[in-house]
């Protein structure tokens, strides 16, 4: 449960989750660079995978938000790619998925929260945004504030709890039966549940930004 500090860079502590986040960032940058070097009009090989990912997120965002959601596509695609890769990282022995650290998921949820509110202030103006907290009646102001805070809480705890819970279960099975049995469990908890939770996190990020816009 406690954050493990791997090493320090000039008195700046680097935790395990941060270290693997950097590795995933480098991996994603490298793969994106290699796959987009020579794009063809008629896709071949890995370009199909790339186009499925980009078009899937594009359709998801545009279906939910309409044409004004176009500027959010890069953000949502980055969140989806990062969360999916981070969840699947747990399969590698010795590696830790950064999303099983609460700091990572809270940072992602806060990012979505801030982007949603900033977009509302930018599009509707400060006054309309401020008045939104007093609707439908000023007496509901505390409930609206608690609702906003619990949105961040549930958004981050959902990913964290699922990934950490799966990791703990696989760890217990490792202790009881270290051979053969953990393999299907790893496939289920890290690959399949990881993909589902990444999809849910992305979908909720889109919806949380979209309800701020309308």
């Amino acid at each position: 449960m406690e954050t493990k500090i791997l090493f320090n860079i000039l008195s700046f502590p680097v935790s395990e989750a941060l270290f693997f986040t950097w590795i995933i960032m480098a991996f994603l940058c490298l793969v994106s660079f290699l796959l987009t070097r020579n794009l063809q009009r008629i896709p071949r090989g890995f370009q199909h995978v790339l186009e499925i990912a980009v078009e899937g997120i594009e359709n998801l965002v545009l279906d939910n938000m309409g044409p004004q959601g176009k500027i959010f596509i890069p953000l949502i695609l980055t969140i989806a790619l990062y969360v999916f890769t981070a969840n699947v990282t747990g399969v590698i022995p010795g590696a830790m998925s950064p999303t099983s650290d609460l700091n990572t998921t809270v940072a992602l949820a806060l990012l979505v929260f801030l982007v949603g509110h900033a977009a509302e202030i930018y599009l509707k103006g400060f006054k309309a945004w401020f008045r939104g907290f007093f609707e439908p009646h000023w007496i509901l102001f505390p409930i609206n504030v608690v609702g906003e805070i619990s949105q961040v809480l549930s958004h981050s705890f959902r990913l964290y709890g699922n990934i950490l819970g799966g990791g703990i279960l696989v760890g217990i099975v490792y202790m009881l039966a270290p051979y053969a049995l953990p393999v299907p469990l790893l496939a289920w908890f890290d690959v399949i549940m990881g993909a589902i939770q990444a999809a849910v996190f992305t979908l909720l990020a889109t919806v949380y930004i979209q309800i701020r816009l309308n």
Binding site: S154, F157, R158, Y160, G161, N162, G165, A199, V200, L203, L204, V207
Partner: peptide, 17 residues
């Protein structure tokens, strides 16, 4: 369906936490 299930899962996730 996935959205509704994800939101109603919050209760179980809080219990897990």
């Amino acid at each position: 369906m996935v959205l509704g299930q994800a939101i109603s899962e919050s209760g179980a996730i809080y219990a897990l936490a």
